[in-house]
Simulated scan of single mutants.
Amino acid sequence: MRLLGLVVIAVMAAIVAGAGQALAAPGTSTTPTSPAPTSPTTPHTPTPTSPSLGIPQVDGILDTLAGNGSSKPGPQASDTGQMIVVTAPKASDPTATLTAFEKGADKSWKPVFGPTKAFLGSLGMGEPKDNVYRTPEGTFALDQAFGRQANPGTKMPYFQATRQDWWDSNMKSPTYNTHVRQANSPGGDSENLYDAGPVYDYAVNIAHNPQRTPGKASAMFLHVTNGEPTMGCVAIDRDVMRKILAWLDPAKHPKITIGVNAAAPTGDGPSTTAPSGTTPKTPTTPSVPGVSDILGDKGLSDLLTQLVNLIPTLLGTK
């Protein structure tokens, strides 16, 4: 997933450049000469204030990650207009940075939420397995939303959880890795979506295992954080989670991309160092004109951190 690191860095660099151009060229503002009538703000349609990136290479890479332009039939061919990007410097990191992007009518991507801190599984991210506290790595659809609280205004399919709502994590169950509504637990490690507590006040399913293959993990959600690493989910601040739910729109086929700037761990435990006498292998990255030539291959994590720290100031949110 080295490509993802480059993608996010390029995106952040583009934001920095875009913000600088906006400050340097106030005469190019597109603000109407006469103010438009003020309309009440609806909670389910937050208005992005970030500049469009307008970088063809970056937009192209985000489209590729989203699966846009696929020639294959089925859901993967749908044009994704909302992307949530989660990235960390190392696969073993239990924390990451989350940024949400939306594709405008001009086909250019723009940041909508974030960057914000996200908690991952206590073993970081990589290959998901049942009973292994690791967040799945890759690009996945976001489908079913739910919560202990009432619908915050999301357009996603949503149900308010009670003590009869479970997520089936029993590997021997025919409804493994699905929501079931019944009085008793489906067995195994199934979660009661109400008794799990405030972390499930607001949540949306990360469809990382749509084939529901036993052993490849179930119940992976984007949900509210309790300030600690998760059992494999991605967890963020409650208010941000609520806003993201209100922003998500199934008509835009939202997806989440989770990746790192180093190879994912191969074992079931965290790995931060290479065996003695060996050199860690990193995935090869396709050449991206205007991106790889500028960034080079070193300091990806440090540069990402620096750019992420600049974003709140540049976008007027700090």
Rank of each mutant, 00 (worst) to 15 (best):
P210V: 09
E228Y: 05
G126V: 01
G54T: 09
T31G: 00
G232H: 05
S190T: 10
S52V: 11
K117F: 01
Y158L: 09
Q21A: 14
K216W: 13
P229R: 02
S70K: 04
F113W: 03
L307Y: 11
P32S: 03
T80H: 03
A36N: 06
K107M: 12
Y194A: 07
G267E: 07
V234F: 02
N309D: 15
A19H: 02
P128G: 03
T45I: 11
K243V: 04
I9R: 12
P186R: 09
D201Y: 06
T87P: 00
A100M: 04
G269N: 08
P214R: 10
T139M: 11
Y176K: 00
V260F: 06
A263M: 11
Q76T: 11
R238H: 15
L120T: 06
K129R: 15
I236Y: 06
T230M: 07
F101T: 00
V204K: 01
P254D: 01
P270R: 12
P198I: 12
T31K: 03
V86E: 06
F159Y: 13
M12R: 13
S29V: 05
V11Q: 03
S29P: 00
W247Q: 00
P46A: 10
T95H: 01
G259R: 01
R212E: 07
D93P: 02
T38D: 13
D143A: 13
D293Q: 14
G316F: 09
T135L: 05
V85P: 04
N226V: 09
S169T: 12
I206W: 05
P286K: 12
K129L: 12
P275S: 11
G227R: 10
Y158Q: 10
S122L: 06
V224Y: 07
T279K: 14
V240S: 14
A183R: 15
S169L: 12
S122A: 08
T284M: 12
P174S: 14
A150I: 12
M156R: 04
A145M: 03
D239V: 13
R134W: 02
A14K: 04
M1G: 14
K298M: 03
A13K: 13
D93F: 06
A264R: 06
Q164N: 15
K216F: 14
L295T: 09
G215M: 04
N151A: 06
T87W: 15
T154P: 04
A105M: 10
A161S: 15
P73S: 14
T116S: 14
K107Y: 11
L307P: 01
A25D: 08
G187N: 08
T38G: 10
P186Q: 07
I206C: 03
T95F: 04
A96C: 11
N226T: 13
M125A: 14
G187Q: 08
T30Y: 00
A235M: 06
Q57L: 13
Q211M: 10
D165Q: 04
A219C: 12
T225F: 01
G316D: 08
A91K: 01
T97Q: 15
V112Y: 01
T97W: 15
T273D: 10
M156T: 08
T225G: 09
E102Y: 03
Q211Y: 05
T285K: 00
